[in-house]
Design a binder for these strands. Structure first.
Lengths: 113, 113
DNA sequence: TTGACATATACCGATATCGGAATATGATTC
DNA sequence: GAATCATATTCCGATATCGGTATATGTCAA
């Protein structure tokens, strides 16, 4: 057995920094492969291959117009990651931490009427 | 060149599902290696090796007590992931989307007094 | 001190990746 | 139809991973 394939899910696809850079470069708009090549300073095959991985896990969508392929981010495909890390948010967010304390306090009062 | 090493950063460490499972199993508490072995049904070397990766990127901390190693999650090490995915939150969160529209509208009014 | 317990590490084979270079596919223009 | 532009795909060598098995390290208990 080997490492989990990059096309398994968003977690694996996004582990590679270049692919995160691609998503960042796309932002909320659309871009063509050659535009991305220029913006990121990567080779064209490199960009195409990374985009193929992102496409495989649904992180980007393509609109073909003649010989131009317009790529855009499919945000919701990132939600599983967001949902997972959010479970740990309270460990660095003091505000959520205090809220948790408050809820705990209220629960204790309920149990001891 | 090959794939980015798992010990490069939190993104790569967390790409493996077993390691996410380990963090989930630890939750907000502490656990010993053998406890994690039992909870997750993995082999002991497997757990130790995954914990070593998590340790390498600061995602877990250890407290040694005799022959017992108590592991716990170091939440803030996940913040880089949280911060990165959060930039795309508006693409699936309609509420943030409307907020963005509102800000855009206000900005437009400013430009046309 | 010997044996049992708890954890870490080393070695192995199989595999998927990465970037680079070359090339294939496909659409446009002359 | 030939040349050009835009993108995708293939082949390559190097490398890091994964799980399994075996073993090393270290601690406690009898």
């Amino acid at each position: 057995m080997a490492r989990t394939p990059t096309t398994t899910d968003a977690f694996n696809a996004v582990a590679e920094a270049s692919r995160r850079d691609l998503l960042d470069a796309l932002g909320t708009g659309e871009a063509t492969v050659s535009e991305l090549v220029e913006r990121l300073g990567l080779s064209q095959p490199q960009v195409s291959k990374h985009l193929a991985v992102l496409r495989a896990v649904g992180l980007v969508l393509v609109r073909v117009d003649g010989r131009h392929h317009w790529y855009r981010v499919n945000g919701p495909a990132l939600k599983p990651i967001y949902d997972w890390v959010r479970m740990f948010e309270r460990t660095w967010n003091a505000r959520l931490d205090r809220l948790e304390d408050l809820l705990e306090e209220l629960k204790t009062q309920e149990e001891e009427p």
